[in-house]
Design a protein around this nucleic acid. Structure first.
Ligand code: FES
Ligand code: FES
Lengths: 166, 166
DNA sequence: TATTTAACCTACTAAAACAGTCGGCTAATA
DNA sequence: TATTAGCCGACTGTTTTAGTAGGTTAAATA
């Protein structure tokens, strides 16, 4: 079992998509900018997310990614699973034969743990996360920062531009 | 966060000690034989377990390792922790600053998860495991096999020898 | 129609961790 | 004194991580 930045990035990116849903496709460049994740690395992750039918892509200018289903029907466990970070804690992948074909002393303990973790993560949907206060606060900060970056780069200074940029 | 054979080996070895407690020190060679873990690797793990005061060692012939405390007062979480497999799932180790000094979108989710896992694993003591039916069954099989090996290697054949070997 | 955008794809890489192995040393016992 | 079994450091092949680099293709726009 392992949970590293790969799985964390995947969930973060999916949550970013969920937060900005309804505004058309979101480009990976935007997610990269907002979440501080390398663009190329995001591409690799989204290849897997797309193969697992968690996102849909739109090519060309103005293109990007969208969630393939409603936020209520995507949970954290499947996102982590999609990028190959199994939540399984056993050494036998559940088959109970890690000690030269036989069940090891602690097999059942790891089964219980795996079940526990999976139950927890699969009970949390993207919608749950979007509705959390702490998430909304961080998202707000990131969006503000994103817009500021945009204005800086375009050189526009009036409040009207700020509005237009969003 | 990661949970690999390292942590699994550590818990398995500690449980082996618990199961054979009260029979004097248990040698790593015995644990290696029973649990199918490389002896040299066990030595490395027990160096850490000893530094974390989870086991006491006795040197010389007839020596080995014993639990340093009662089985009720050793839980699975601290064993895993002792061999450097943190149960922490955050990228910031709880400090909330993994996105260039600021809190990332999913920080609180990983905090919750870490708490969940830690609560689960620290609620399970070695005594709990020793008393489990499934553990007892596997232990019984391993002990039987261990004695058989012993008899084979010494060449003794009578039931009395079998008894003496245990 | 040419250009730009952004997804898509493959291959490569430095660094770390994992799961060991090997050889030698030291304390206690028989 | 020989044996046992813990102790210790160094070394190793393999895998995974977290990227980078470089190119191709589809769609929109100027
Ligand atoms: S973890 Fe399943 S048999 Fe060992
Ligand atoms: S995981 Fe804690 S700030 Fe990102």
């Amino acid at each position: 079992m392992r949970l590293t930045t790969k799985g964390r990035y995947a969930v973060t990116a999916m949550l970013d998509l969920a937060l900005h849903a309804g505004k058309g496709p979101i480009s990976l460049a935007d997610i990269s900018e907002r979440q501080g994740i390398s663009l190329s690395y995001l591409e690799q992750l989204f290849a897997k997310l797309r193969r697992n039918e968690l996102v849909r892509s739109v090519r060309g200018p103005g293109g990007g990614y969208q969630l393939s289903r409603d936020q209520v029907h995507i949970n954290v466990a499947e996102v982590i699973d999609a990028v190959n970070e199994s939540v399984d804690a056993t050494g036998c992948h559940g088959s109970g034969d890690c000690q030269s074909g036989q069940t090891c002393l602690t097999h059942h303990l790891w089964c219980d743990l795996s079940e526990q973790i999976h139950a927890f993560l699969s009970s949390i949907t993207l919608l749950d996360l979007v509705q959390r206060k702490d998430v909304q606060q961080v998202a707000k900060r990131q969006d503000r920062r994103y817009v500021d970056q945009l204005i800086m780069s375009t050189g526009e200074k009036t409040p009207a531009d700020r509005k237009a940029a969003v």
